[in-house]
Design a protein around this nucleic acid. Structure first.
Length: 567
RNA sequence: CGGGGUGUGGCGCAGUCCGGUUAGCGCACUUGGUUUGGGACCAAGGGGCCGCAGGUUCAAAUCCUGCCACCCCGACCA
């Protein structure tokens, strides 16, 4: 490819509205352009890389027996109504104004289940793995970070159909292995976390994560021990609060200026973890009290799975006053005005010597014994893991990091097959719903993550597998020197002959300009050809990742690059 | 949806507070010339309904009102 004829609009300056390095570089290197918030055009150079990612996805999906579909983005709304997801998706789903019976698909479980219901009738017809690489539409309230979160985005989504739980386990395992291979081949450093399945009813779910400051998920990890978990479900080894000896009788005391646990601990010289924090939530319209250690934060995901509902929210001040007869800052488990359920975090099991609000403004109790003085309806893990706590595998400190969700594998179960009547007969002629799994990868996110992990101050550093071109020939003084032209073109032909993709910078630009652009584009090897070297029968080979340059005779380049690309 | 910010040529910005020459600068673009191994220089050019719509005024990029778009923080995120 001649660069003078190829559309690669590079930018010298960083576009004002790009914050994330990969976003900046994708714009600067001419891979993408933004069309609207969360909507991007892929330019030729970017699309070349995107296609290479898709090739890897196809190869690995085919390798586990996946069959590629292309499902429509326009979907009949009534199919989505059968699973109640028009309502569940709410504003996230795009609706069509002048054709009300159609919607834009944000995912494809329903359509897969629909087709399965038509044609998959027997246990002999499964297992099936169906996948596609296709645009998804989600009306994100706030698109951000370039292609990281868009309103239209490419997803590799696949779905497994099985007759038995064991079959699902196998399909799930196959996907897990395929995903590992995919991300490894893309050269991404990632980790896998167990994720909260929330109230959606699936049994097992794991997310493939990439540590990144712009990531929207939070995970607790220890790379050495291999512990990694979404903060929504993360656990750690923490000493319970426990008992003190000879805990005296409970005693009320005045705390007029202590509104927070911190105030309380500081003003009265108390141990912060014996100051029990009272968190008030409304769960399915009922007010509940959760007691936690003073230092801990309630984890809403854990609360949701404990109660099996996602209808949870913090109680507001008037609800609190109503139930407790006191305001936040003086709440506790003792003598609550209304009869409500009280739960406590596991770390408070058997604890005594606790301090908590008296449900009377400006007063607290001390010497509270959970068993002696409180009526607790249940204990569970409600807390959010904190940085530095011991991981449950090695006991070494956990790191709490931001992460990008690249992929998600999910044992769905029968929710969609039941709703859409996707049923099969088993060996005994008994009708059963198909057991489904759902597996997704954000295709454009792969690209962004690769750039996040592989760039320097000069630009992108592509790996051999994803680079848009294998070799970047820089013809210095190309427009002037017939010799440079001759050597460049011969080399281009010879490299293409052995299957390498070549970008030849034949533009009428000064050398410095070409060097800067080449580093920005980030093709792994640059072959620098100019009269100065050719006079001594030398050209220069520069490796983008190390910056290392070697001088070499033009006749040895093909051999050298054959080795480099292991052809 | 709440809070904050920004809209001026393809990109990056100044000008707006305090209304008043012909709307300016750098990059990019066109032409000519000199240059040519890490984003050259000189000269001459082309390109703007100053986000949109109203309003105030003799006069609006500038003041007022409404709307729109985009970015950031938060809420949300199968």
């Amino acid at each position: 490819m001649y660069q003078s004829q190829y559309f690669i609009p590079t930018l010298k300056e960083i576009p004002n509205d790009a914050q994330m390095p990969s976003h900046q570089l994708m714009l600067r290197a001419g891979l993408i352009r933004q069309l609207a918030a969360g909507v991007f055009s892929w330019l030729p150079l970017g699309y070349r890389v995107l296609k290479k990612v898709q090739d890897i996805l196809r190869e690995e999906m085919d390798a586990i027996g996946g069959q590629e579909f292309l499902l429509p983005a326009l979907n009949p709304k009534d199919i989505w109504e059968q699973t109640n997801r028009v309502e569940a998706m709410g504003d996230v789903m795009f609706h069509i104004m002048n054709r009300d019976n159609l919607v834009l698909a944000p995912t494809h479980e329903e359509i897969i289940a629909y087709h399965a219901s038509q044609s998959i009738k027997s246990y002999k017809d499964v297992p099936q793995i169906w996948y596609q690489i296709q645009n998804k539409f989600r009306n994100e309230p706030r698109p951000k970070s370039g292609v990281m979160r868009g309103r239209q985005f490419l997803m590799k989504d696949s779905y497994s159909l099985d007759a038995t739980e064991e079959g699902l386990d196998l399909s799930y395992e196959k996907h897990s292995e395929a995903y590992h291979k995919i991300f490894e081949r893309c050269g991404i450093k990632f980790f896998v976390v167990g994720a909260s399945s929330g109230a959606m009813g699936g049994s097992k779910s794991q997310e493939f994560m990439v540590e990144n400051p712009f990531g929207e998920d939070t995970c607790a990890v220890n790379y050495e021990s291999g512990y990694s978990s979404n903060i929504e479900v993360a656990i750690s080894e923490v000493e319970p609060v426990g008992k003190i000896e000879n805990c005296p009788e409970m005693e009320k005391f005045a705390t007029p200026n202590a509104k927070t646990i911190k105030d309380l601990a500081e003003q009265f010289g108390l141990e912060i973890n014996r100051c029990a924090k009272s968190v008030v939530y409304v769960v399915d319209s009922k007010v509940v009290l959760i007691l936690m250690r003073g230092i801990d934060e309630l984890n809403e995901s854990k609360l949701q799975s404990f109660f099996g509902t996602n209808q949870v929210r913090p109680a507001d001040d008037s609800e609190i006053l109503n139930v407790f007869g006191a305001n936040p800052g003086s709440l506790g488990p003792i003598k609550i005005k209304e009869n409500i359920q009280v739960f406590a975090d596991n770390l408070l099991i058997g604890a005594n010597g606790l301090i908590s609000g008296a449900n009377e403004d400006g007063f607290h109790y001390k010497n509270i014994d959970m068993e002696r003085d409180c009526k607790i309806d249940g204990y569970a893990d409600f807390r959010t893991v904190l940085e530095g706590e011991a991981d449950t595998i090695s006991g070494n400190p956990l790191k709490v990091v931001n992460a990008i969700e690249l992929g998600h594998i999910f044992k769905l179960g029968t929710k969609y097959s039941e709703a859409l009547g996707a049923k099969i007969l088993d060996e005994n002629g008994k009708e059963k719903p198909i057991i489904m799994g759902s597996y997704g990868i954000g295709v454009e996110r792969i690209l962004a993550c690769v750039i996040e992990q592989n760039h320097d101050e000069n630009g992108i550093v592509w790996n051999k597998g994803l680079t848009p071109f294998h070799v970047h020939i820089l013809g210095l003084g190309y427009d002037k020197s017939e010799n440079v032209q001759k050597v460049c073109n011969e080399l281009k032909v010879n490299l293409e002959k052995i299957g390498l993709e070549v970008l030849l910078d034949d533009r009428k630009e000064r050398p410095g300009f070409k060097f800067k652009d080449a580093d920005l584009l980030g093709i792994p090897v640059q072959v620098i050809i100019g009269d100065r070297g050719l006079d001594e029968n030398k050209v220069e080979l520069k490796y983008r990742s190390s910056g290392e340059k070697i001088e070499i005779s033009p006749t040895n380049i093909v051999e050298n690059l054959t080795k480099f690309y292991e052809i």
